[in-house]
């Protein structure tokens, strides 16, 4: 009986809600559900990042580890099973590299990112054979999770974030797509089931160095001038008059903190033609192998140098057992 009542009363309640909103009569409700899952072989850091993100997304549905790395199209069915229209998939490779897949499930695009933290820069890495690349910085591939202690912020679990996008997201088509996807996956839809009514954190998405840097901050209201408290309390009464200017906001970082390098955008959901490929991305495998080669090259170079000097010295007759041939300009020849 209760279910019948619910089903009968729900549409009307929904209508009331939309009416209350007034302006958005023409707009459809923003319904998003995100399937959050990882592949096998994630490290604890990757797992913590996943947990952090799933804690931030009340419209997310965390699932068990996905067993396959090649048959990703199976994720579509899985998402359908859970009524999710977004998928956030953590693919770990070699127990150290993390790739994140963001996808709109039925037919939207799929974006593959390489996730890393770009905190400490370890070494500079040059690629000679590709003139477009001048210099690529390789960094330690870890992410900062919320558990790390140098973040002091905190916010409600499931409150809707304000999403702050860099202007750069509006300038390139592929960044536009990325922005839209982030908006739908990280933005908690209005009236999501477990969302909290207040807004107390911002998620920042910035583009720098060809990467997307994601940060999460708490909004803390601070006094700007005297008499802030009364202003605050009286403001509740007259909210319609617009925000007061007495309090200011400051930001405190909450975490997690990670950097995504877009690699590929596919047109379909885990399939379809590739419509964007990042040429600036070098796979971490390549980076590692180049580093190894550079290290090995050092020895070769040294050995070669040694040989060369030896040859030179023997030419000059400086090495024992070899004799320099007398030529016409020799002193003994000239002053004989």
């Amino acid at each position: 009986m209760a279910t019948v009542y619910k089903s009968l009363s729900k549409p009307s309640a929904d209508k009331v809600a939309t009416d209350a909103d007034g302006a958005n009569k023409g707009i459809k409700r923003n319904k998003q559900r995100v399937l959050i899952l990882s592949s096998r072989g994630v490290t604890y850091r990757h797992r913590h990042l996943l947990n952090d993100l799933s804690a931030m997304l009340p419209h997310g549905r965390k699932d068990v580890k996905f067993d396959s790395k090649s048959k990703l199209y199976q994720l579509n069915e899985l998402a359908e099973l859970y009524n999710c229209n977004n998928v956030m998939f953590f693919e770990a490779r070699k127990g150290k590299d993390l790739y994140m897949w963001f996808s709109k499930v039925p037919n939207g695009p799929t974006i593959k990112f390489h996730a890393q933290n770009s905190e400490p820069q370890t070494q500079q890495h040059t690629r000679i054979f590709d003139p477009l690349y001048v210099r690529v910085l390789t960094r330690i591939m870890v992410v900062h999770t919320m558990e790390e202690l140098h973040f002091t912020g905190n916010c409600l679990k499931g409150s809707r974030p304000v999403l702050s996008f860099d202007l750069a997201f509006e300038q390139e088509p592929h960044l536009k797509v990325i922005k839209e996807l982030f908006l739908q996956i990280f933005g908690v839809p209005q009236g999501a089931r477990k969302s909290k009514p207040f807004i107390d954190h911002v998620m920042g998405f910035s583009v720098a160095d060809g990467k997307i840097w994601i940060r999460n901050y708490e909004i803390r209201e601070v006094e700007k001038a005297k008499g802030e408290d009364e202003e605050e309390s009286s403001n509740k009464g007259r909210k319609s008059k617009g925000g007061d200017k007495e309090t200011d906001v400051s930001l405190v970082e909450i975490g997690p903190r990670f950097v995504l390098t877009p690699i590929v955008i596919q047109e379909g959901a885990f399939g379809g033609p590739i419509i964007y490929e990042n040429k600036r991305f070098i796979s971490p495998n390549q980076v590692r192998s180049d580093l190894r080669k550079a290290k090995a090259g050092r020895h070769n170079h040294r050995a070669e140098q040694k040989r060369e000097t030896l040859g030179k010295r023997s030419q000059l007759g400086l090495v024992a057992g070899t004799k320099k041939e007398r030529d016409g300009l020799d002193t003994r020849e000239l002053f004989a």
Binding site: A23, L167, F169, S206
Partner: peptide
């Protein structure tokens, strides 16, 4: 701009951060 801000809560900065 014809949708309420609370619908999407996204903001695009005025400057390119980079």
């Amino acid at each position: 701009s014809n949708v309420p801000f609370s619908y999407h809560q996204s903001h695009v900065s005025k400057k390119v951060t980079e």
